[in-house]
Design a protein around this nucleic acid. Sequence first.
DNA 1: CTATGCTATATAATATAGGATATATGATTT
DNA 2: AAATCATATATCCTATATTATATAGCATAG
Lengths: 220, 220
Amino acid sequence: MKKIVTLSMREQIYEALKGLILDNSYGPKTVLAIDRLADEFGVSATPVREALVRLESDGLVELIPNRGAQVTDIREEDVRYIWEMRLLLEPYAARMSLDLVDQLELAPLEADIHRLASMPNDTGLYVSTDIRLHEMLYLHVHNELLKDSIRRIHQMARRIRFFAEHSTNLHEKVINEVIEEHLDIIGAVRSGNPDLVEPALRHHLANGEKRTLSALRLER
Amino acid sequence: MKKIVTLSMREQIYEALKGLILDNSYGPKTVLAIDRLADEFGVSATPVREALVRLESDGLVELIPNRGAQVTDIREEDVRYIWEMRLLLEPYAARMSLDLVDQLELAPLEADIHRLASMPNDTGLYVSTDIRLHEMLYLHVHNELLKDSIRRIHQMARRIRFFAEHSTNLHEKVINEVIEEHLDIIGAVRSGNPDLVEPALRHHLANGEKRTLSALRLER
DNA sequence: CTATGCTATATAATATAGGATATATGATTT
DNA sequence: AAATCATATATCCTATATTATATAGCATAG
């Protein structure tokens, strides 16, 4: 029987708030009043404040002493910084862990991507394949610090992505671009040659930055 | 007149505890009992807990629900992971910000390093020159995410360094090695050529990892 | 007689409620 | 119009209550 893990209030509220911020239910600059949140969650102020302290460390919330908390803003330069980090970390991680990628993961992922090609309006499928592909390329690295760094950056990217997706309505043209790049990466992974994976991933990330920036500019 | 910034209790305690952990006053596995700390700082439990939550995000403290907090342990593999991150991030940061390094910083730093050569037992001078040199190479990068990542890693490295220093008693031979590597880096920085800086820094970091690992093994 | 499992107690973390404190806002005075 | 003061609101901290975990003692089975 699986052990029942009782999460503390702090952690439950942390996870809940993080989810709400990452999917933009709480968008940039949203004021997070402690008392109101405490009421909503049916708890007192303290565990809410502790959750906010953790979210500040994650870079998702800004805490001003005696003034309160708000969801961090997204500026255009943040997009550039996030993708600069992705370009630095992810190709390296992929290279270091390529041997550990389970070749059996590839076929079902590839199948889903082909399925997406025939139903390009399925945003959920689009997002889930993207997440699975990128996780495959770093989740097997041994270095926990590297993994944590990539996770942190992916969190920030995810906020922006949802934000940007909304604006572009994901033109079919864009989806097909991404599909092609994903299939390229899978092909390279199948070969087992890091000198093929790295450029394919770099190309995909560089294009992703461009797509995100133009989507964000349209939005404003 | 400069505005007086009143730090919250949470932040004061966070900074104080971080300092104590980083200089190994609170060594690995030290139990951090909330009530005792609250007494010592003359405050109640809440701000202490909030400080511990932040320290957990920094990777300096481990929080087990309903069980308490302890200073994270240092394992040999952590040393390898930390230096792997340093080798990935710092040469890149140096390359990206080399143009922004103030050439006027170089002469006084170089002078202090030469001064160290004549008094190799001055541990304080050794540590401060090392910090200044490495900060010079990343502090001017624009990308705040990259800077934060390096700061995080440096924090962890600092804990281990103090730990390791204690054990080796810093043989003069080791000090002279480091001095030579530092002077190489400064020379490369002065040339303004990233293709000279990067290998000099990589060489220094790789040796630093070896020195740290052997010091740590002696300790145990 | 030893080992295992259960129960009662002690200890420490966690959450609540309330009060102290800092900041922002709007009115009043110069 | 600028500055000062009073008031309101929300954060932050303290004190207390609650809850979860660890420890020691006792009972029971092998």
